[in-house]
Amino acid sequence: MKHYLLSVIQPVGEPPAADVLAEIGRSLDAFHDELKAAGAWVFAGGLHSPETATVVRVEDGHVLMTDGPYTESKEFLGGLCIVRAPDLDAALAWGAKATRATTLPIEVRPFHGETDS
């Protein structure tokens, strides 16, 4: 089985109303339960907004830390889920379920260096 990253692509702006977020939360819980029951669950979690980020980088041999996002954008990584799937088609099927649960776009990407087993 290969591992795939399902990235939740969230737009910048105000979050949905509390009742809408509660429904999304219930849908995500059901999605995660389905992943676990299928043996596809590895990890999932939501992220705070980019304003909470600290960027760490090397410049002229020194480590620099900067508050805030690395770049300004109209969207950001709002959460992630790592799944086990036999192939890209199966991972895309999980991505389809994730986009229904979150109501947001999901980017599906394989990890490097994994082969079919």
Rank of each mutant, 00 (worst) to 15 (best):
T99W: 07
T52K: 15
R100Y: 06
C81H: 01
P86T: 00
T102E: 06
A90T: 05
L35M: 14
C81A: 01
V83W: 00
L88S: 02
T52E: 10
S73A: 13
V42S: 09
L80N: 11
G13I: 09
G68R: 03
D19I: 00
R109D: 04
E72I: 05
S49L: 15
G25D: 04
A98E: 04
G13M: 04
L5N: 04
A98N: 02
A30T: 11
H32V: 13
D33P: 11
K2P: 12
Q10A: 12
L80E: 12
G79R: 00
M1L: 14
T71R: 14
D33F: 07
A22P: 06
H48L: 14
W41N: 06
M1Y: 09
D67I: 02
H48W: 07
S7P: 13
L77V: 09
L5W: 12
S7T: 08
G25W: 02
E114C: 07
A38R: 01
L64G: 04
K2V: 06
L80Q: 04
D33H: 11
G13L: 00
A85V: 06
L21Y: 05
G45V: 01
A18P: 15
E23I: 08
A96H: 11
K97P: 05
P16D: 02
S49Y: 12
A17F: 01
L35E: 04
L5M: 10
P105A: 03
K2S: 08
G25M: 04
H112D: 11
K74M: 08
L21I: 01
P50V: 02
R84E: 13
A98Q: 01
K2T: 04
L6E: 14
G61M: 03
T71D: 14
F31H: 14
V8H: 09
A38E: 08
P110E: 01
E75P: 14
V83C: 07
K36M: 05
G25I: 07
D67K: 02
G113T: 07
A98T: 03
E59K: 14
R84L: 12
E75T: 05
A44D: 13
G78D: 03
A91F: 06
D116I: 12
A38N: 08
L35K: 07
Y70A: 04
T115S: 15
P50Y: 00
D116L: 14
A44M: 05
D60C: 01
P15R: 02
E107N: 09
A101G: 04
Y4L: 10
E51M: 06
H3E: 15
S49Q: 10
L28A: 10
P16S: 05
A90R: 12
V8K: 12
L28H: 09
T66I: 04
C81K: 02
H3I: 03
L28D: 11
A37Y: 00
G39S: 07
D67C: 00
D89G: 01
F111N: 06
Y70M: 12
I106H: 03
R26M: 12
V83E: 02
H112P: 15
G13A: 06
E14C: 11
R100E: 14
Y4F: 15
M1P: 14
P11V: 01
H32S: 07
P86E: 08
V108Y: 00
S27P: 10
